[in-house]
Nucleic acid binder design. Structure first.
Lengths: 210, 210
DNA sequence: TCTTAAATCAAACGCTCGCTTGACTTTACG
DNA sequence: CGTAAAGTCAAGCGAGCGTTTGATTTAAGA
């Protein structure tokens, strides 16, 4: 009981830290990195302004942590869902698994949706030193291509990269763009029922062209 | 020669005004509405800070004008290109026409690309009173659906809205996201050659599902 | 009980922001 | 030439920004 004592002060500190992370993710999801202010985060988290520099060092470092946390959550969920596919899965099954985490976040809303929107915004405005997560992105892509390349022949590696990029971009767009538009009125099951054929069609490409 | 005199001062004023519009579009394309600052725009345009309030009233009004100008350029080009399609066009032709303005902007770069990126960002972070341009958006959608509905049966109006939305989102994503990534290395013709089958596949959906 | 360290807090720092002001320059018309 | 209007400009306003500081509170260990 020397190093691993139950220190209530440390626990309170963790709670403040997590609250700042969650508040940062919600605001990053709403307005992006440029539109986030320190005092807005601390107000939402019920913390003092100096808590940010105490726990993270700076606002930039807090945003980086929030983004990295969001990316890791998303990619882990996506990789798991694609990995759980059987070898007999069709293109639609792969598309549904690939879109699964995003669709579920759209359905439940709350912090999960904020995390997904934060992830999507990273694709448009990546922070400077985001190279650390590249490996996971590529793993997710490679897993999908491995499932699809046998079912969709005649597509080389560079074109697969393009198609996966399109599929991911389509998901990111759906999760970012419908704020305040008519799509928000549709029930989530409806959106998924519409999305899977579109996603599968995009991955397949034209029937007669490569 | 009373009201339509050749006033050199007025012409100079127009040049300043257009320079501010162009500078605003470039910065809106790079960082979005939240990341744009008055002094950065005026520095880039070689104008004084007060020129913004003189010509537009406020920074917000300048950004609104820049966005509206960008939207109008884009939608007009897209509507024209889709309207020039013959009745015998295939799904791939419609997809190519729909993507034409964006692809050309990617190829030539410069202000055209800035305009397209500004348009794409509006889909994610729309300004407050952007309802004025809704009619043109819907016209562009309707024209595309009119060309496709005969060739792709079994899709009702709400699902068509969804598919067009996906297609437009995919284009917007491609024009926004590749900044600084490996896709920027590919020649524009290659990107279009890859894109058209993906876009057509997305519009078609799965062959066996609605 | 006293010490120590973790965590929180109000207050202030220098800086940049959007915007306004009033003077100045330039051109057109009588 | 004198007047008027359009446009430009340097300077400064208050407000909000991210960050730092030093004091204070809280709980654990000796």
């Amino acid at each position: 009981m020397v190093t691993e004592r139950t220190d209530q002060r440390r626990e309170a500190g963790q709670r403040t830290r997590d609250g700042l992370l969650a508040a940062a993710q919600e605001l990053l999801a709403q307005r992006g990195q440029e539109g986030v202010s320190l005092r807005e985060i601390t107000d939402r988290a019920g913390a003092n302004v100096s808590a940010v520099s105490y726990h993270f060092g700076s606002l930039k470092a807090l945003c980086d942590s929030a983004i990295e946390n969001a990316l890791e959550r998303y990619l882990d969920a996506q990789i798991d869902e694609v990995a759980s596919l059987g070898t007999a899965s069709g293109v639609e099954d792969v598309a549904a698994a690939f879109a699964g985490p995003m669709m579920r976040a759209l359905a439940v809303g709350g912090r999960d949706l904020a995390v997904m929107r934060t992830v999507a915004r990273v694709g448009i405005d990546p922070p400077e030193g985001w190279g650390r997560l590249t490996a996971k992105f590529q793993q997710s892509r490679r897993d999908v291509v491995r499932h699809l390349s046998a079912k969709i022949p005649g597509v080389d590696e560079r074109e697969w990269n393009f198609r996966i990029r399109c599929a991911a971009g389509l998901l990111n767009w759906l999760v970012l763009a419908p704020i305040g538009t008519e799509l928000a009125d549709e029930p989530p099951e409806q959106i998924e029922r519409w999305l899977v054929p579109v996603l599968a069609g995009a991955l397949r490409g034209s029937p007669n062209a490569g």
